[in-house]
């Protein structure tokens, strides 16, 4: 059996590895599908829904990060409907918590911000929720600011799957979901945290950051983690 299959993306025929997801197939062929929760080396969860695509012959949208590409598939990754929905999803995220870029360490280097800019989000049509959320400064090297968190769970996955410490998880449910450190401890009081900082590097926004950086100064080194996971065998 051939190790490569052929699919069509936005009309163009491309080749990809058998077993790859549609997202991976697109990326390997230089086509960009938006996404915030997926990351090379971490198990894909399909949480942010920004990577949804249209597949000919299927009457519903599919999440490209968790859907395997199949021989002969015809995928549309940019369409008016998809872009409209992606904008809505980003606006929902921006309204959910307190994403005030002007005073954020990740301003200018934030995946949420970049994606919003790229997709043309200029205003948020929903009411801002302004939840009262805390900032955890107890760890000697890092900061957790819940106001910036988009619940993408990259930190949860990297800590559990790559570092093996499983310090983070999501507590509560629905709109009340919150990142929790162990049994709702402050980060500084964590028993299992190794201070490796992988969670900080994979965080797409300024929710997790290194101490000592001022506004606009926090530039993440996501690639460092990707290299690690590539060595490990992909984290799947």
């Amino acid at each position: 059996m051939d190790s490569k299959i052929t699919i069509r993306i936005d009309g163009e025929l491309v080749k990809t590895d058998r077993g790859a997801s549609i997202f991976e197939a697109a990326k390997a062929n230089g086509k960009h599908i938006p996404g915030l929760c997926n990351m090379k080396g971490l198990k894909p969860v399909g949480a942010c829904r920004l990577c949804m695509v249209e597949v000919a012959g299927v009457n519903r949208l599919l999440p490209s990060c968790t859907t395997p590409a199949q021989e002969g598939m015809s995928v549309t990754i940019r369409s008016a409907r998809l872009d409209a929905y992606r904008k809505q999803a980003l606006e929902l995220l921006l309204s959910e918590r307190n994403h005030v870029c002007a005073v954020c360490v990740s301003n200018g280097h934030c995946e949420l911000q970049s994606l919003a800019t790229a997709l043309g989000v200029t205003n948020v049509r929903y009411g801002y929720r302004y939840p009262k959320l805390g900032v955890d400064l107890s760890h000697p090297r890092y900061v957790l600011d819940h106001n910036r968190c988009i619940l993408c769970t990259r930190c949860v996955r990297v800590c559990a799957e790559v570092e093996g410490a499983h310090v983070w998880d999501i507590a509560g449910r629905g709109i009340h979901s919150m990142l929790t450190c162990e049994m709702n401890r402050t980060w500084g009081a964590s028993r299992n945290c190794t201070s490796c900082g992988k969670c900080v590097q994979v965080c797409p926004t300024g929710a997790l950051a290194e101490k000592g950086f001022a506004v606009e100064e926090m530039i993440k080194r996501t690639a460092s983690v990707e290299r690690l996971t590539a060595v490990r065998g992909g984290g799947r």
Binding site: H166, V167, A171, C181, E182, M183, N184
Partner: peptide, 8 residues
């Protein structure tokens, strides 16, 4: 089981 998971 990780305490974070139990709490979750």
């Amino acid at each position: 089981i990780p305490t974070a998971q139990v709490y979750s």
